[in-house]
Design a protein around this nucleic acid. Structure first.
Lengths: 215, 215
DNA sequence: GACGTTGTTATGCAAGTGTATAAATATTGG
DNA sequence: CCAATATTTATACACTTGCATAACAACGTC
């Protein structure tokens, strides 16, 4: 018979542990929703014991909020990097932005599961609500700026209202295609969603965003 | 001192009780997510005691599934009634369908909260996954049929692939605008989302869906 | 009006929940 | 190598969870 000794452990850096706990939380939420994110499940996945959570966060609620902020930041960051790496022509910048938003790793079931689990409570939980709204408006502003650049770059005029409507519509089509792609990615060919997204925006704006390749 | 007697009660019809329990479940989910849908909370809201749930459902899981099926059916039903009540011109049928999908009661925070809470688990829970996929495909088929009618009614030809892409895009824009409207309805004017949705689809299809009113 | 059926309540239970606290050990500085 | 520190574990506790069971009472039937 073995006498169970006290478990060995290593002291990790503070930031590292926080990040591990957040990642473990996101894993739990992705797999079993908010219900699955119990302190014990999170700790187990992070390779520590439950009590440690309260050493890094005031309570479970704060850990969840930090996790939500992390996943949101990660998503918007991915979309923005698509803007940074691309050439100047506003139309191709917009196309690249659309493309990036509609292929992996932005299209991703895990991310979507987490998003859905949190967003379901954004209507009733005020903190989540404002967090979402801020993220949404930030994203839409990004789109609106892009559209404005496309218009001015093409020598077309658009009122503020028109810009706003275009931004709302483009944002909606990104969101809608994103949801569909995450939930049923296997129903679409590779790159099909991006193709559809770009084509739709071209039709909506009444101009081509890509250079014609095979014409 | 009052001796607490046994609680008075009435025997309700079987179908009525089931429906009450489901509605109570949806209320709980809407307000506090799946975590808030405990047997005791549900029972309390339905005005019964917890044990009764197990008299009508094998377990909590089945009650949740029945609730999900109910809310999904209600949503698709609302969209379909918009089709039944409207004139024959395919273009105006499509416009009415879009309009109906983008104003209350389809645009509704409560419905959205429930949808989000369940959909977050559609990626990991197979039962929810197939349920969603069925609902999504049904909705998209509806859209595709409408688009096909619009095309043939306007004397235009479209390949199956084109129809499919249009249906996917239109479905996406409905979904996206729906999400935005539910989560931040106060950021949009009355009917603005429907306006944007119809306008976008008009641009995508390259034809007008409404009769010009002020021209 | 008494009776049996069964919808409904009340109570109990084992497992799981978040949190509080104390003990233990890994790590750092001397 | 030793002492100080605070990260980490371990344990306990009050509470909630879903579910099982038994008592009860509302309703239909004779």
């Amino acid at each position: 018979m073995t006498v169970a000794g006290r478990r060995k452990f290593r002291r990790e850096g503070e930031e590292r542990r926080r990040q591990d706990l957040i990642e473990a939380t996101l894993d739990c939420v992705a797999e079993h929703g908010l219900q699955g994110a119990t302190v014990r499940a999170i700790a187990s996945r992070a390779g520590v014991t439950a009590g440690l959570i309260r050493h890094y966060f005031p309570g479970k609620e704060e850990l969840l909020q930090a996790s939500y902020a992390t996943i949101m930041g990660r998503m918007t960051e991915l979309a923005k990097t698509a803007l940074a790496t691309v050439e100047q022509d506003p139309r191709r910048r917009l196309a690249a932005f659309l493309e990036a938003s509609l292929v992996p790793p932005v299209i991703d079931v895990r991310t979507f599961s987490i998003w859905g689990s949190f967003i379901g409570r954004a209507g009733s939980d005020p903190a989540l609500g404002v967090a979402h709204r801020a993220g949404y408006l930030g994203f839409r502003d990004e789109v609106e700026t892009l559209v404005a650049e496309v218009f001015s770059g093409s020598g077309r005029l658009a009122s503020a209202g028109e810009l706003r409507r275009h931004a709302i519509a483009i944002n909606a089509i990104i969101d809608g295609l994103w949801v569909e792609g995450c939930l049923a990615g296997d129903m679409f060919e590779n790159g099909e969603l991006a193709e559809i997204g770009i084509g739709s925006v071209e039709a909506m704006l009444g101009l081509r965003l890509r250079r014609e390749e095979l014409a």
